[in-house]
Design a protein around this nucleic acid. Structure first.
Length: 511
RNA sequence: GGCGGCGUAGCUCAGGGGUUAGAGCACUCGGCUCAUAAUCGAGUUGUCGGUGGUUCGAAUCCACCCGCCGCUACCA
């Protein structure tokens, strides 16, 4: 069995973090991409999960008087709640503390060890005695101080197993050059390439100063460095070493969606590990930008200031999902603000889309008792223009495959605006007064048929709204059974269906 | 310091050697009245960061300068 599945992943989230709009951003984008591929008929496997090992987790657990496992189990629901809140359609959820993961990690690392890619050496790093742990240089405060105790750290040596990363630098450079799409966007690829070209050092792959991790099978007292453990989730969850058939259908992953802060691990360490083990590398690592809040980088301090649940409560889940993808170019940093979210809600969703649905269904209701008529009147210039707008939307949405969500949504709104313009051009209220029944039938049919297409095309981004809209149209088939390109073609609507005006979509926000 | 990127309308941004520089939002005027005072049309605003250069011609290429940002390894 060869690969036949579109496999995409989010990072696995560190349990100690509190879910904030940054995590939600990556996850929603991945979900939209997953739903988009399903809409196009792909078999999709969408993975997310939690990263549960490491010293910080062990410390946090200790402070709470729990075992690390208890601590993780206790916090896990927060992350699962986020997925529920955002209506994420992941097919699997991996925890790095699961047996299916740990056993495969050990096998993978054993393989690297057996073939000589791991060797014992001495790691020297800044160590805080009171923390009983090492820090990254970047974490230290001014003057080599421990960030917690504000006391000088000392250089301490530790015997570790090192991964021969340097050996794979040429292979990595070949990879970046042969597959420019491996790291995206281009800026990020350039960074990664420059980093590797400057020369790689081998990296330590095990730790001994604490024990909360996957045990090293050939050397008691060593556990694997959490990044080796964490990155491997992408293959352990896909069936590596356990279900070779499933694995071969999914791997290599089509895309790992990540934030740019973890680019190096995904674009350097990860492919090097895979190349070493003789496993194919993923097709793409896509690093999106940061969300800025009030002009500042999202950090631990202001991250908790805006909770996804707060925004979902105020704007609704559909607007939440729509806003971040429409407002910000996915590969670049972008600014979140309450005001811009209100603006998107009001202009794009309430005025353009919600009102369009309402005005169309109201006319079908008053002129034809809610029943969609057959398009009897002749089609002319207005219909041709509407058709072009539909083409624009369909062609434009393909931008989603490049993770250019903003561009795709812009083009999709060309159709929303197009239907509004079409209504203005044909003035169904005038046709009704004149008793031009055939023409009116044509217009109403075209409008509802376009709404049908809009429901289909918006469904990856706003699945709830799309479902409500679909229900209003009274169609027999299920929305989730719709597939492109057929469902995007004109005339797919069967005359005679009974529409229901119902509740307005995206009612105006309260002041 | 090195490498890379950015600086275009009030705001967010697109474009990228060639006729009068674009989009959305905001704003102004007009039309319509089916609709969530929604919608549709028309219109206003720019020394395209600065200086110099290449060119018949530069916002678009080059150099330098100013301002901002990213990467420059073992927290995740």
């Amino acid at each position: 069995m060869g690969k036949d599945t579109y496999y995409l992943t989010t990072p696995i989230y560190y349990v100690n973090d509190v879910p904030h709009i940054g995590h939600a951003y990556t996850t929603v984008a991945a979900d939209v991409l997953a739903r988009w591929r399903r809409l196009n008929g792909d078999r999709v496997h969408f993975l997310t999960g939690t990263d549960e090992h490491g010293q910080k987790v062990a410390r946090a657990a200790e402070e709470r008087g729990m075992t690390p496992q208890q601590h993780c189990d206790d916090i896990l629901p927060r992350w699962k709640e986020m997925l529920g809140l955002l209506h994420i359609s992941n097919d699997d959820f991996i925890r790095t503390t699961e047996d299916r993961h740990e056993a495969r990690v050990q096998e993978f690392m054993q393989r690297l060890y057996d073939q000589g890619d791991l060797y014992k050496s001495t790691y020297v790093g800044p160590y805080c005695v009171r923390c009983e742990g090492y820090y990254a240089e970047a974490e230290l405060l001014e003057g080599e101080l421990c960030p917690i105790h504000r006391q000088p750290v000392e250089r301490l040596e530790q015997e570790n197993w090192f991964f021969r990363l340097s050996k794979y630098a040429p292979a990595l450079l070949d990879l970046y050059d042969a597959h420019p799409g491996f790291v995206q966007p281009d800026v990020r690829r350039n960074e990664v390439r420059a980093f590797v070209e400057a020369g790689l050092e081998d990296i330590s792959a095990t730790r001994t100063e604490f024990s909360w991790g996957v045990p090293c099978p050939w050397d008691d007292g060593h556990i694997f460095y959490v990044w080796f453990d964490a990155l491997l989730n992408y293959i352990t969850a896909a069936g590596y070493g356990a279900d070779e058939e499933a694995f071969s259908r999914r791997w290599p992953a089509d895309v790992h969606l990540i934030g740019k802060d973890i680019l190096r691990f995904h674009a350097v360490y990860w492919p090097a590990m895979l190349i070493a083990a003789g496993v194919e590398v993923p097709h793409q690592v896509y690093a999106h930008g940061f969300l800025l809040v009030g002009g500042e980088k999202m950090g631990k301090s202001n991250a908790t200031g805006i909770r996804p649940s707060e925004l979902v409560e105020h704007f609704g889940i559909d607007c939440y999902r729509y806003y971040f993808l429409r407002e910000i170019s996915f590969g670049q940093d972008g600014t979140f603000s309450w005001e811009s979210m209100e603006e998107r809600y009001t202009t794009d969703l309430a005025n353009d889309l919600g009102n369009l649905v309402n005005r169309v269904l109201n006319m079908v209701g008053s002129y034809r008792d809610g029943v969609v008529p057959a398009p009897t009147g002749a089609a002319g210039d207005a219909e041709a223009q509407l058709s072009r707008d539909r083409e624009t939307a369909l062609a434009g949405l393909a931008a989603f495959d490049r993770l250019a969500f903003k561009k795709g949504l812009e083009d999709l709104w060309q159709l929303v605006g197009g239907v509004n313009r079409y209504v203005e051009a044909r003035q169904p209220w005038a046709l009704n007064k004149q008793g031009a029944d055939d023409d009116l039938d044509r217009v109403l049919y075209e409008c509802v048929d376009a709404l049908r297409v809009i429901a289909v095309l918006t469904s990856p981004v706003m699945p709830d709204m799309a479902q409500s809209l679909w229900a209003k149209l009274g169609l027999d088939e299920a929305l989730e059974d719709q597939r492109l390109p057929e469902a995007g073609e004109p005339g797919g609507l069967v005359p005679g269906v009974r529409t229901e005006r119902g509740q307005v979509l995206f009612p105006k926000l309260e002041e």
